[in-house]
Amino acid sequence: MSDSTYGLGRTELHDLYHALCLTRAAEERLELLQKQGHVTGGLYRSLGQEAGAVGAAYALRRRNDGSGDMLCHTIRAAGALFLFGGELIDFFRQYMAKGTSPTRGREANVHWFDFEKGFVGPVSPLGTMIEIMAGMTLSFRLKDEERIGIVFYGDGASSTGAWHEGLNFAAVQRCPMILMVENNQWAFSTPTSKNTRVSSFTDKGPGYGIGAESVDGTDVLAVFDAVRRAAALVRSGEGTRMVELKYFRRKGHAQHDPQDYVDPEVIRMREKKDPVDLYRARLLDNDWASEEELVAIEHETFEVCRVAAEAAIAEPYPDGLDAVTDVYTDLTTPHPWTRGDSPDPTLA
């Protein structure tokens, strides 16, 4: 196979490998942190899906001043979050519910925001984020900005009413956004066949009058190419588009899910389609990177995760009193009188 680099130079090809390794190393570090008792909430792996988030995010305009493209990632798209400037230590702080986390411990895992860097944390019913991104990108069109948005969600979210309402609104309003459906074939324990009758989510595109394309989500360069082309069309005024990432969720919905509803043989087969291994082999086969360069990236990403996680471990949890702040921008939420000094509710 004579592989195309899709116009990417050696440094950029290495960037992609770095982002893939970073995603995997960060999630493997999380597993360790969970075993150590530092992660108390759910833990969700993207094993086998890393190339979808990385390839897509790399195709977009990433800025630090609020002028770039806007990302809405998911729990299984941490690679995109990192490429958009989400700090590794913040990722660990969020999972560990630290008071130093971007949400000061109010929210978990990848649910955080940075409008300057250009990412918006999801709400857990993911279909709703189609509506939110429709409005963000509507504002780009209204303000005549050359920005676009990309919103990740799963095959399961495609069944919600919010998905439909958000997409239909975006299509009608020609909102410059790309819907990235992460078709990993499972919505928790529900197979895609129980979420939809269509064999490919791209079949849904024409129903909304938008263009859609399906791509092998384990091939980071194919994803990059598909999203770059989609982004060019969206940016040029075509309006909303959809890209389907096809791959397979090789872990359970979360660590607490033993995945016993999936034939273990299928999972073993899918290990051969590991996006990191595939891309690594390709880099070597095409002489885009040397073994030494790749090992250096692997060591470096392992090490930055270790250092960031250890730093985050040492940081404090939030003071419980902080639970009452910021419910509103301008109002104070009272503390319960039983938590204060007043012996009498009439005086509190």
Binding site: F115, V120, T128, I130, E131, I132, M133, A134, G135, M136, T137, L138, S139, F140, L142, K143, G161, A162, H164, E165, G166, N168, F169, A170, V172, Q173, C175
Partner: peptide, 25 residues
């Protein structure tokens, strides 16, 4: 651009309004 007739989808346009509010509108 400032008076937008929407599809019949209260969730869709209310959610879109939230996105626009994030972006300073």
């Amino acid at each position: 651009n400032r008076v937008i007739d929407t599809p019949i989808a209260e969730g869709g346009f209310t959610g879109a309004a939230a996105g626009a509010a994030h972006m300073g509108l």
